[in-house]
Simulated scan of single mutants.
Amino acid sequence: MDEYEIQEEKFADLKAEWWDLVRRCKQANTIFLVPEWQEPWVDVDLNADGQSPLSIRLKGTLVGLAIIRRDDGDVSFSADTNLCDYLDFLVDPDYEQGVFDAFLEYASDQSWQTIDFQGLQVGSPIVEMLPQIAREIGHSVEITEWDVAPYAALPDTWDDYLTGMRKKDRHELRRKRRRLEEAGGFQYRVIKEMGTELERLMDEFFRLMRISREDKAQFLNEEREEFFRNLIFSMAGLGYLRLHVLEERETVVSAALGFSYNGTFFLYNSGFDTAYSSLSVGLLIKAYSIENAILEGDDKFDFLRTNEPYKYHLGGQDQIVYRCFIELADAM
């Protein structure tokens, strides 16, 4: 029988192997699970004690990795689900059974009481395989639909995308775009690289987030702004950053932060100046980002979690995001 080794390891010591593992995990190969995404949050998390990467190795090779938080006997993913739309247990597809067997044995040895994994995409091995393994050894498992994350499959051209939209939505989008063009003086562009311009536009992005909606102003506290800044610089360095801005001459009136990774564009957050609401600049910056993703050759546009109406007006359709809750047998 293969012997799996489980231990806590430091982020810095894992980075190269982490990248190799996430690329092997087709279902979990998402921007939210790359090491550069996880590291900034730990750096600014004031409650970082009790969270760490839990590695699972077979003959020295990393075949499983879970970034977890322990609160007494209750275990969950360490990342803030307000900042990470998708989370998962990174498992080499060739070793899923062995990794989960070893993980559950470790959980019992550590006297964990519950395991609560949220933010799981369709096809996650936590949804597809872990429940059966856990139930076979007496644990209680509940899989629930936790949220939705609208998305759109991207065709080869913007015209094809428009054709696939609902007739009313297509008409409204064309009308709003035409009205902006007729107003004149507006310019759309995308920032991808490090530099003083990125720093300036990043400040504008935060300003627009805060003034566009009260809930966004409350969300963007000092700690989360620091996370955003670290993340933006990291993603720019890796080539994944896409900061979309719409300007009236030199004034930024709307902005959308996103990332292009592994064939998918992830629309992460946005903001706009409410003084320009009559020109629908908040909606249009998102439409421009869809068109840009098509031009760059992405296959999927992910609006990410929550069912805000604009996502469906722009062609989104739901995909389910799951939660897996396990109560260990010894705790029942």
Rank of each mutant, 00 (worst) to 15 (best):
D203N: 10
Q121I: 12
K300H: 15
K10C: 10
R249F: 09
V321G: 00
V122N: 12
E250G: 09
F265Q: 04
N221V: 10
L304D: 01
E128H: 07
E226M: 02
Y288C: 14
W37K: 00
M1E: 05
D160M: 07
G98L: 05
Y276N: 11
S78I: 02
L65P: 12
D2Y: 04
M235W: 02
A48G: 14
F301Q: 00
T114W: 12
E308Y: 13
W37N: 01
V34G: 01
F77G: 00
S111K: 09
V42R: 00
A102H: 01
A275S: 12
L65S: 09
N230P: 01
E128S: 11
A66N: 05
E3V: 01
G123I: 08
R174S: 05
A48P: 13
F103E: 10
L14I: 15
L154E: 00
S55R: 06
R179K: 14
L120R: 02
L162K: 14
Y161W: 07
L328W: 02
T114Q: 13
Y151H: 09
V99C: 12
Q218T: 14
G297H: 06
L238H: 07
S280F: 05
V22L: 08
L65N: 14
L90H: 04
G138D: 11
E128M: 12
L314G: 04
C25Y: 08
D299G: 14
